[in-house]
Write a protein that binds this DNA or RNA. Structure first.
Lengths: 336, 336
DNA sequence: CCGATGAATGACAACGTTGTCGAACAGTAA
DNA sequence: TTACTGTTCGACAACGTTGTCATTCATCGG
């Protein structure tokens, strides 16, 4: 590989002068600068970042540890937002997917610390508590879409309560008061918090909470039984004496199921039942008829916010709630 | 940051001996080794990879340039497969998303070459021809899910023809001979090749090709008009004198639309129309009733194959076709 | 014409690591 | 004792940069 010395020899100067040219140091005569630049171009020289790192004691790298962000639809936007802000600050992300594997996680963190990452981001696919790798405390770190009780770290999570509130509010504003909810697995943070938002919206509107209207859509054990589970949930709701006229679905896949399942009862979303949901899965939400009104997870925004926080290095180690965006289509509104 | 010299001082040896311990060099007395190891642990020493890089003239990094792989549902599996193989060989991926931006692409490549990546992978979200960044020829490179005519490089793309063939064949085997197809935008490689596979399957089965059965599902200009476009396609097919009894959909979103749209005609997928499709979008395909039979894009496999190719450095610069996997559910079969 | 000034450039060290070579030492055979 | 072996360890250089300081040279005022 061609080094600064090769360029110097080619240009007939000392290698220090070449260094000056590369770094736009002002103390170089114009003529010399041009000659050196010509040699750089001729030899195809590129500064060796490893040498620079050693000299400057800075890697310019930010580690991004993800459990499975990258493999999940649109969660990758989190990465995208992070990359965008990082590159504004001339930093690069080094992304490692650890896939819930302890050993792999350890190896990944070792690798990142050996590369002297200037900071670490830990991002999880779904909003949950994590076991904090203790090594993360050695460098500035932030958590995204996850949290921990083991240490105080800047944390960015979606505002699930607000999302639940807004999703419900959209239906209340349409005049509904019998509003059903198909929840995610209650062990999940999102499930509990969104329900909290739902209740808050009802309270605020003076609507009494009715436990009968809350049914679980995700199966307790067998993932593959999800379709059946949603079907059961819809059946349960539709068998009620006072059927709901509106429904908050725990995720867009549930909503899709609902669109199909209502046909059994001769009903249609958007005519007989108003629906809102969460996620705004681009594959599903716009493709349904009527278009699905849904709360979009702020992945991009969380990624951005987390990196901004790293660069504005204050001592603020609080948890920040990033709001969902309501994507308003037609499903929350009944056509008469 | 604590260096090898700090450890040496702490352990009362020369720094070279510490180096030997780190690298498991045999010529160290057991007692010394333990003493040094204790110091390493006590000080929390981690070897500085920048220094190692400089010394060894090897970065251990493989650059992964993606146009938008990461932000697209499940295309991230490509990255995952690549990462898996890389880490088997003790290499790390450095991923950069260039988002079709010329400048960003140039910056990304410069950055990667300055970091002395040992190889480059260029992966595109959908199968297409790319303009090859000329710098890629400076290091061993492979293309994934894309190709170029500007140079001969090892290339890994999905076998679209086989996918079209298989998707059609599944229907033929069920006794169908009037098989419609809703195609993607014909400018896309996948669209043309899959149609070729479709024709081959028909030929082989002695079924005459009928152009009336081929309709375009993707709108020509306006992306947002896709739903309407598919609706029009279905209407067209259903208005034929001899309606198709089976249908190959260009992507799972089309299939989802078809499930809904058939209702207009009082028809049902799996009862009146057999359907196959492409992609196996996890959000859609398993959630439809009947489950969608679809050809899964070999993202994971392409990622793996590409990296294997880099490590088995032969001079083979050919294009390898990676087969789709048929994910057989129920939609290709009519229930009587 | 001389010394002072400032601009342009070079010599050298250092960053943290590993490869090469040689030194110190213990043990063994003659 | 000597000579030789092998084991264990350290001194030193080098990798490619950049910061510090010294040197060279032209220019300018007196």
């Amino acid at each position: 590989m061609v080094s600064i010395k090769d360029v110097a020899e080619h240009a007939g100067t000392s290698f220090k002068t070449v260094s000056r040219v590369i770094n736009n140091d002002p103390g170089v005569r114009e003529e010399t600068r041009e000659r050196v630049q010509a040699s750089i171009d001729a030899l195809g020289y590129r500064p060796n970042s490893a040498a620079r790192m050693m000299r400057n004691q800075k890697s310019g790298v930010i580690g991004f540890i993800s459990d499975e962000v990258v493999t999940q639809p649109y969660a990758g936007e989190l990465l995208l937002g992070a990359q965008e802000v990082a590159s504004e600050h001339d930093k690069v992300l080094m992304v490692v997917n650890i896939e819930h594997d302890r050993k792999r996680q350890q190896r990944a963190i070792d690798m990142l610390l050996e590369r002297r990452v200037e900071a670490l981001v830990y991002a999880s696919y779904y909003h949950r508590e994590i076991e904090l790798p203790q090594e993360m405390l050695q460098v500035p770190s932030v958590l995204v879409n996850c949290f921990t009780t083991e240490a105080e770290l800047p944390t960015f999570v979606p505002d699930e309560v607000q999302a639940g509130y807004d999703a419900t509010r959209l239906l209340i504003e349409q005049g509904h008061s019998r509003i059903g909810m198909i929840t995610l697995n209650p062990q999940i943070v999102a499930s509990r918090k969104r329900l909290e938002g739902y209740r808050r919206a009802l309270d605020e509107a003076g609507i009494a909470f009715d436990g009968e209207l809350i049914v679980q859509g995700e199966p307790r054990f067998d993932e593959s039984a999800e379709a059946a589970s949603v079907a059961f949930a819809v059946d349960t709701l539709m068998a009620l004496d006072k059927r709901p006229t509106a429904l908050v679905c725990g995720k867009d896949e549930f909503a899709m199921q609902v669109y199909f399942l209502l046909a059994r009862f001769g009903l249609q979303v958007g005519r007989d039942l108003a629906v809102t949901s969460f996620d705004n899965q681009r594959l599903i939400a716009p493709g349904l008829t009527p278009g699905l009104t849904t709360m979009e997870l702020p992945h991009l925004e969380m990624g951005r916010a987390a990196l901004h926080c790293l660069f504005n290095r204050t001592d603020d180690r609080s948890t920040r709630l990033i709001p969902f965006s309501p994507i308003v289509r037609e499903s929350h509104r009944l056509k008469v």
